[in-house]
């Protein structure tokens, strides 16, 4: 099924492109549907396509040789993933999996190559996307390398909360997904969440977690967030 240029404009990377260029990109794109849990691509595969989330959520994960998972990020509406192999002829560095029913717009590898040669604005859009990824991965590395498990779980709660600016934000992640994102196991997440609930910082409800006191979850680099919010 084709992609409508108006829909494509809802993706931040294409919002500022001229109408004609958005139309030519949309004409090269394919709309794909994924079921909850379905794998989109696997770490190590050759695949140069660029993927954009139109609806739903996608998680990007690394897997160890003995099956442990580490989440790199959670992709929400408008976010872009994939595309690394395009630029160094290497393989996908991570796996992508749909978390719920997801609609994705795919720009196949050949089309990206064509657009790169004829559309400098697309390269600028890619630079923007990759630059954001770099900042995110630098932060993930810091969190894994120098934060405690409790701080990592707290950080995930804040990062993946809906309406983070409001007092009672909601996190819709299972304990298992929180564990994968914070580099630990489900049992440790459950123990820590129970502790937070006893302290009145969160409330665990069916299918989600309500954050009652976001300030109590702030990580060591809270100063950085506060600075960036000013």
């Amino acid at each position: 099924m084709p992609v409508n240029p108006e829909e494509l404009r809802e993706i931040p990377a294409f919002r500022d492109l001229p109408v004609g260029q958005v139309q030519s990109v949309a004409a090269l794109m394919v709309r794909r549907h994924f079921a909850p849990g379905q794998i989109i691509f696997v770490e190590g595969e050759k695949s140069g396509s660029l993927w954009f989330v139109f609806e739903g959520h996608v998680r990007i994960i690394k897997e160890s040789s003995n099956g442990r998972l580490q989440g790199l990020c959670l992709m929400t509406r408008g976010k872009c993933f994939g595309g690394c192999p395009l630029f160094d002829l290497d393989n996908n560095p991570a796996t992508a999996q749909a978390l719920d029913s997801a609609i994705l717009f795919v720009l196949p590898g050949g089309a990206v190559e064509h657009l790169r040669q004829h559309n400098p604005d697309l390269v600028k859009a890619l630079l923007h996307i990759y630059s954001q990824r770099l900042g995110h991965l630098a932060r993930v590395s810091e969190v894994l390398g120098s934060w405690s498990v409790s701080e990592r779980i707290n950080d995930c709660l804040l990062t993946y909360a809906r309406h983070p600016a409001r007092q009672q934000s909601v996190v819709e992640l299972t304990h298992e997904k929180l564990a994968a994102l914070s580099g630990t196991v489900r049992e440790v997440v459950t123990r820590h969440l129970n502790l937070l609930e006893r302290q009145g910082i969160i409330r665990i409800e069916s299918g989600h977690i309500v954050i009652l006191n976001a300030d109590a979850l702030l990580p060591p680099c809270a100063w950085e967030r506060q600075q960036s919010a000013v």
């Binding site: 690394k62 160890s64 442990r68 580490q70 790199l72 690394c84 630029f87 160094d88 290497d90 560095p93 991570a94 390269v123 890619l126 630079l127 990759y130 630059s131 990824r133 770099l134 991965l137 630098a138 993930v140 590395s141 894994l144 390398g145 580099g183």
Partner: peptide, 20 residues
């Protein structure tokens, strides 16, 4: 773009090492 991609790959590899 290549410079940024190279650094991205390096950081993905670092995350793997720190996690596993």
């Amino acid at each position: 773009l290549r410079l940024i991609t190279e650094r991205l790959k390096q950081f993905v590899s670092l995350v793997h090492d720190l996690a596993f």
